[in-house]
Amino acid sequence: MNKKGDKLISVYWFVILFIVAAAIVYMVHTFYGKPYDVRQIEADLLISKIARCVSEGGYLKEGVFGEDFKGNFGNFCNLNLQVEDSYGWREQEQYYLGVEILKFDSYEKVLSLQEGNKQLKDFCGQNEKNFPICLERSLYSLDKEGNSYKINLISIVRKTEKNVY
């Protein structure tokens, strides 16, 4: 039996074992070391909630052009945009919502409302992982008289510290 050759094989065996282990540790650390990023789902749920609040069954909901909606559409849509007191989030709002209603034929703006942190809008359109998640949706709706409208919705979720790092 070639003893020198045996020893060499066992050294190589450990080298391979270390390489495999290092790769597994690296992959696990990469996957589990970062927080779960749920902002895309959150922004999607937020925009769906606003859409259901503005329009139902293809018709604009009652009160959409009323003072209650204009004054505080977050409250009107049963939304609470307060966040936990960590990473200074209480001082810097973590959400932005926008609703724009346009006449379908003339694209004349009938209503434009915003709520939350307006500065977050500046980050939209830039594909950086540390930036807030922006989501835009459009839908069409009718009023009781049969006039058609285009509704543009935008929702932005920041919450970077708990979802990216």
């Binding site: 959150e42 409250n75 049963n78 609470n80 307060q82 966040v83 973590q94 959400y95």
Partner: peptide, 19 residues
């Protein structure tokens, strides 16, 4: 704000927007 605590400490908190 929902908080889940499975060990000693403050646990993990995350906010939801449903009022």
């Amino acid at each position: 704000i929902v908080t889940v605590r499975l060990r000693d400490g403050a646990g993990y908190s995350y906010s939801f927007f449903n009022n």
